[in-house]
Design a protein around this nucleic acid. Structure first.
Length: 511
RNA sequence: GCCGCGUUGGUCAAGAGGUUAAGACGCCUCCCUUUCACGGAGGAAUCACGGGUUCGAGUCCCGUACGUGGUACCA
């Protein structure tokens, strides 16, 4: 079944109807990795055959997401290529010839049933055993189509402009079998496959016809898609057989689904459980419905790709952290799992944390800068700023954490967690800090050692354990129980800020 | 209902007839640190269930249960 010659060509074919979710990006990723590994080409094709579902901006959004992820196609509607157009709506006429070819060969037929006819059929034939009757080899004999009407009637209908669709004529009593790269041999009884519409009344093809025609015309060698397509694959197999021959058919791989806390992952899950589902923020232009993205949540693209790659695949060695290059060399479709994987946000955050830890501040700086600027913090001295980021880097799980983890270096905390120190607060400690402020003021050399030495010496003099004073000191400077070494912080924020923060805090504590 | 696909700890998972059933996340205990992290040492699974096949089954076969996808002139 595999093509003997030619370059590997794969495609991602989304319909531009909304945000790009986790599963979609993973499908892109596996396509991309496979293509790059085999020195092949990755094509982006837009499946916009449903005009009723057109969403403004959705296509551009897909490009933006792919760009952010570093999964840019070799051919696409935007950049073009030798097999264009890459937008199915622009290929409309091409599909007609193939539909006609199928009709002439007796593998498809015209159907004139209206929506009401179909509804009536479903209602009439509905039983408890068969709640959803299909337009199949049995029922098509009871409907209005070119198999039941006379040739004259069919011709007249078409001439008079009676709306029609073209349906595939699925043969009865056949077993349709194909080999999937992930599921291996899969087979279906043709009796349970319905006569799917190939060409809609508006002249547009359905996905079923379009995917086969385009994969052929675009010389796709390997077709990866989500497992939700597995059930309709027999229709595609049949179409390949009738139109181009099974020996021309790409190799299929039906990727396992990514599941949410309760079944198939949906954008609702994200809102409900507080994690992003889309690659980037997306607001539906019509409903204004907003869905959060991994990018804006604070994920690094590398980490996002890394965690997605491992959701359904691993290289068998136990390695979990992979760069894109490593993924390209290590990836193999054979090691993709059969079963769906539940998305675990905690693990996702762990991946990001690891990526932040292994990245240098220099690499992270542009993104961190944007986060601070969005909060209207002006970075005055870049080197100083970077030194501080170095101090807090390991404490950040998400990129957005940098703000909270470092803002107190630039601004005095607005709220102090005084509850953490109040229970053990007393006169002696007030006295200590008042004296300490005076000493700091006199300090000639402002470095970590001098700040720390005078602190400890004074504590000993006052007969208080330094440890009991360190937490208060931290709360005064930081506002909370977190951050790097206190004296390091004092050093970085400078003498006057240190003194003024201590004094401000003293007022609050002694209220 | 019917059809397809799947089923190793809470989650991701290694495992391709013989292992004390890896590892990671999360959780818990402890060490380090008189903050938070980082780092380090530990703790927790009768491999969905029932039948086979086999000297021997998480690994092969059958059934059941459960989950999941499809059952549109949506992709």
């Amino acid at each position: 079944m595999q093509k003997s010659t030619g370059k590997v060509r794969v495609r991602f074919a989304p319909s531009p109807t909304g945000g790009l979710h986790l599963g979609g990006v993973r499908t892109v990723l596996y396509n991309y990795l496979f293509a790059k590994k085999h020195d092949g080409e990755f094509i982006l094709r837009i499946e916009d055959t449903d005009q009723t579902r057109f969403v403004e901006g959705a296509e551009q959004y897909i490009y933006d997401c792919l760009k952010w992820c570093g999964l840019e196609p070799d051919e696409s509607p935007m950049q073009g290529g030798a097999f264009g157009p890459y937008r199915q709506s622009e290929r409309k006429l091409m599909y007609h010839d193939y539909a006609l070819q199928l009709i002439h060969a007796g593998h498809a037929y015209y159907a004139f049933d209206t929506h009401e006819d179909l509804e009536k059929m479903r209602a009439d034939f509905k039983t408890t055993e068969n709640p959803s009757p299909q337009y199949d080899s049995n029922l098509r004999t009871k409907m209005k189509n070119s198999l039941t009407l006379s040739a004259e009637e069919v011709e007249r209908n078409i001439k008079e402009g009676v709306p029609y669709v073209v349906r595939i004529k699925v043969p009865a009593n056949e077993t349709i079998t194909f080999t999937d790269l992930i599921h291996h041999e899969v087979s279906f009884d043709s009796n349970v496959v319905d006569d799917k519409v190939l060409l809609k009344a508006d002249g547009m093809p359905t996905y079923h016809l379009a995917v086969v025609v385009d994969d052929y015309l675009m010389k796709i060698t390997h077709a990866f898609r989500g497992e939700e397509w597995l059930s309709s694959s027999p229709v595609h197999i049949l179409l390949w057989k009738y139109l181009f021959g099974l020996d021309q058919m790409p190799q299929w791989a039906h990727l396992p689904l990514i599941l949410g806390p309760s079944g198939k992952l949906s954008k609702r899950d994200g809102a409900k459980f507080g994690f992003p589902v889309y690659a980037m923020n997306w607001t539906d232009p019509k409903t204004k419905d907003f869905t959060e993205g991994f990018k804006e949540k604070g994920f690094l693209p590398g980490a996002f790709i890394n965690l997605l790659a491992l959701l359904g695949w691993n290289d068998g060695t136990g390695q979990e952290l992979f760069s894109m290059d490593e993924l390209i060399t290590q990836f193999s479709i054979e090691r993709v799992h059969k079963s769906g994987a539940k998305f675990d946000y905690e693990k996702a955050k762990w991946f990001n944390h690891e990526w932040i830890k292994k990245s240098t501040v220099e690499e992270l700086f542009p993104d961190i800068k944007k986060i601070f600027e969005a909060k209207e913090v002006v970075i005055e001295e870049e080197t100083h700023f970077k030194n501080i980021m170095e101090l807090v880097k390991d404490r950040c799980t998400l990129m957005t954490d940098f703000y909270e983890q470092a803002i107190y270096f630039f601004k005095a905390p607005e709220v102090l967690d005084t509850e953490a120190v109040k229970p053990k607060w007393n006169e002696a400690k007030t006295d200590f800090f008042e004296t300490y402020c005076a000493q700091l003021h006199e300090l000639n050399v402002w470095n970590v050692a001098s700040i720390e030495d005078s602190f400890k010496t004074l504590a000993t003099e006052k007969n208080i354990k330094p440890g009991e004073l360190q937490l208060p000191m931290r709360i005064m400077l930081v506002g909370g129980k977190f951050g790097p070494a206190v004296f390091e912080i004092a050093h970085k924020i400078g003498k006057s800020a240190t003194i003024s923060r201590i004094k401000t805090a003293l007022v609050q504590l002694n209220k």
